[in-house]
Amino acid sequence: MKEITLRVFRYRPETEAEPTFQEYAVPLRDDWAVLDALNYVKEEIDPTLSYRWSCRMGICGSCGMTVNGDPKLSCGTFLVDHAPGPITVEPLRNFPVIRDLVIEMTDFMQKLGAVQPWIIRDESDDDPHTELLQTPSEMDDYKRYSMCINCMLCYSACPVYGLDSKFIGPAAIALAQRYNLDSRDEGQEERLDVLSDDEGVWGCTFVGECTRACPKGVDPAGAIQRAKLIAANEAVKAFLLPRWVR
């Protein structure tokens, strides 16, 4: 059987001060993804290699890695597409590394909470026994942004986040927009505080790389620019109009 070489980023904080690369030869099989190759390494060659994975069907968002320089879901990145190799596998960029390919992402978890990603509305007139109506076209307005699997590839691709981790970042803003654009939601104004901050939408310089990296077609870059429009609009209104007309 043909083989291919994986060059894997290793970092063992208890024994090493700096990361190293380790090479493993794995079978080059047509239907193997990078994740299958890593599992082969772990089961057959080196049990100490650490990485996250779970669903292996591109929906849980666990297995993001940098494969040959690009942020990818390793379950959906096939060896044959990178033959003859070697394939360099590193942790996602822009995040601190806990160990090997495992990144630290509590920063995102906090930012996600900060944009209030839940329906905000006055529920006093809602009838719990029926649905809130929403036409397919109204759903289309936000549907795309609801597809985010929190895989962190967009943060890894975003140079702004790399340079300043205070930037709230693509996925969190896209999710804020997901709710802002939902016909059932009334929370746009509440979310604006966080979004219109310096570290919010204005941090984005529209590189657009987040959208290219997104494996689910979410288009965070578009979401951010649209949020900028809203934020600018609101700022102008707040400046020009008395409160009661706004």
């Binding site: 208890e14 822009n94 995040f95 601190p96 590394v97 630290e104």
Partner: peptide
């Protein structure tokens, strides 16, 4: 002990 990845100076040439 977390390893902090640094953005290289010429990051904008990498892509």
């Amino acid at each position: 002990r977390l390893h902090r990845q640094r953005v290289p100076l010429l990051w904008w040439t990498s892509r």
